[in-house]
């Protein structure tokens, strides 16, 4: 019970901090929208739906790397120490992960709408595509949160973050692209159950591994 309470308070704190400055939301939103716009200006229109799909996921990948890596890399040492005194390490990583999931689900939803409007194409099976978007932002958040914690501890942030997280995220990206491709092709939904199960499985493993490993990571 204590754990749940800690997570709730930390989550409230994260949302509150974000709501006051609105820095992360606005900056990532601006990043995503301007990237989509740059892509539109260079592509004009996308004939092949595979390209449309791949481009969307590449934009999402970089947006979430930028968004989620903030969670540990941009926090001051003093504030981290203060948190560690107050709460258990498991609660800290879990609250950060949940916060990042909320942030990314919101942002990718907005990005999807903008992307659909700008490129003027709606996937035939939009609900299924949206499921893949939700699962995508979930997986990106869980994996990148833990990797950003590792990269922040290692000292030199941005570069290491990319090196460490790309090989980890590639399998997820492959499944996601396949899942959303199914939605674009308008295949029967039962075909996609394999991929959905696989993604949920990967997320469960990632969250469990984060909860088990983070207590060893935070101590200096």
């Amino acid at each position: 019970m204590q754990f749940v309470k800690e997570v709730r308070h930390l989550l409230y704190k994260e949302v509150m901090l974000e709501w006051r400055s609105k820095y992360a939301i606005n900056s990532i939103l601006l990043y995503v929208v301007s990237t989509i716009f740059v892509c539109f200006l260079s592509f004009k229109s996308i004939e092949q739906k595979i390209t449309w799909n791949a481009l969307f996921w590449i934009i999402m990948l970089f947006a979430s790397i930028n968004g989620v890596s903030k969670s540990f890399l941009q926090e001051s040492k003093g504030r981290q120490l203060y948190h560690y005194v107050l709460a258990s390490p498991g609660a800290i990583i879990l609250s950060k992960t949940i916060y990042n999931v909320l942030l990314m689900v919101g942002l990718t939803s907005i990005a999807l709408v903008v992307y659909i409007i700008i490129f003027d194409y709606i996937p035939p099976d939009l609900p299924m595509f949206y499921v893949s978007v939700i699962l995508g932002s979930l997986s990106f958040s869980t994996i990148f949160t833990m990797v950003s914690a590792i990269a922040a501890k290692a000292g030199n942030g941005g570069m290491l973050m990319a090196i460490l997280s790309f090989p980890l995220i590639i399998p997820v990206m492959i499944i996601l692209i396949k899942l959303s491709k199914n939605a674009i092709d308008g295949l029967d939904r039962s075909v996609s159950l394999d991929e959905i199960g696989m993604l949920i499985f990967i997320n469960v493993i990632t969250v469990c591994a984060s909860l088990l490993l983070f207590p060893y990571l935070w101590r200096d």
Binding site: M146, V147, I150, I202, I205, T206, L213
Partner: peptide, 16 residues
């Protein structure tokens, strides 16, 4: 310590 954590974190992904 940090590399041990990354190693454990990466292993399930490698298996997948």
């Amino acid at each position: 310590k940090i590399s041990a954590i990354y190693n454990i974190f990466a292993f399930p992904m490698m298996v997948v």
